[in-house]
Nucleic acid binder design. Sequence first.
DNA 1: CCCGAAGTACAACGGTCGCTATACTTGCGT
DNA 2: ACGCAAGTATAGCGACCGTTGTACTTCGGG
Lengths: 200, 200
Amino acid sequence: MTTAATSGGRGARERILKATVELFARDGIHATGIARLVDVAHVSTRTLYQHFPSKEALVGAYLERLESEPGGPAQIETVLLCEDLAPRDRLLALFAAPPVDRASGQVVRGCPFHNTVVEAAGRMPDAATFVERHKRELVATLIATAEAAGAADPEELGGQLAILFEGARALATSLNDPQPFEDARGLATTLIDSAIGRPL
Amino acid sequence: MTTAATSGGRGARERILKATVELFARDGIHATGIARLVDVAHVSTRTLYQHFPSKEALVGAYLERLESEPGGPAQIETVLLCEDLAPRDRLLALFAAPPVDRASGQVVRGCPFHNTVVEAAGRMPDAATFVERHKRELVATLIATAEAAGAADPEELGGQLAILFEGARALATSLNDPQPFEDARGLATTLIDSAIGRPL
DNA sequence: CCCGAAGTACAACGGTCGCTATACTTGCGT
DNA sequence: ACGCAAGTATAGCGACCGTTGTACTTCGGG
């Protein structure tokens, strides 16, 4: 179901970005042509190219949007910054919910950042660099949160949780089954509680 | 560096498959056109289409080859079946070596099966089904090996190792850094030894 | 030796894709 | 109320991609 704006008019850039996030994340970059993008965004082709010089530039904007958009497909990772939760709960929240896109209601097809690297296949170095930086920040955030939770070795725990998170998303995608997320949550709980000396 | 056969002649099907595995795994499916495939395989376009009715059929053959080819990009997983090693060592071997393709000598760009699902983006249901089955078999093999190693809860350990393996490959790809593989190996060692009651 | 299968060379087709040109319309800010 | 930026509609370009047709060559087995 398309959730982008249903009427044309001013604010084209915003509609283009919304449609881009929706379609690139759900259907993939190669599978999403400019024509469909223009359809969903209710924007003329000309307008799209007045805002973005090329499809590759659109991919760059897509990645930036993924990072900043609160309800988007990358929303899960933002719980790490939620100050309302205790550090331990923030870490566990990563594995709490099945990774669902609020817009489409469907289970997210893996990690959109990682998928972009795979689809780019070495042909879009800027995108690869962006994702590399994003993932390094994710690991850094995990380490910082692990430290805030009082982990004995925050770097070790952060690195482990990063692998668990990526692995759960990848395996859930390949298996077409959310089960790995539950397995990862169980192991994550053990690792966290062991690292912070929490009683069983 | 291209390692496919350097001369034409009989045996085209084999050369086509070798080139397909090399190029699809290294450069991606979308990025690999029939023209390049034909070049590397030293085969005429016509011959390729006499062996495979379409590119999509070639993707199917590619996946089958990935599973069976001993030295191919999916070679790492085959150590699980190596009877020369003790079960515990088989499990650890998964994380021992950086995932390198013998043909290209480069670090493998994630898991080729998972990448195929991502690139297919829902447009090749057969490929997705194939990968799903492959991954279920991988998990099953991990569980069986965990059981052979004497794990207290083989299903739990197998599932955990599967997530670690997938996560290490995915994160190493996104980060463009083999570090996650080392982190995963450390955690895997702990999990295995804890599960089989091995002393530190 | 020679038939038939296997492979080759190459041009071209239809389709799609990213992208642009042209000419027109809309609607907010002042 | 009106000017100008913003957006629209649409046709089409050139390039590339997967795929096919045609006519020719090369072998190996009987």
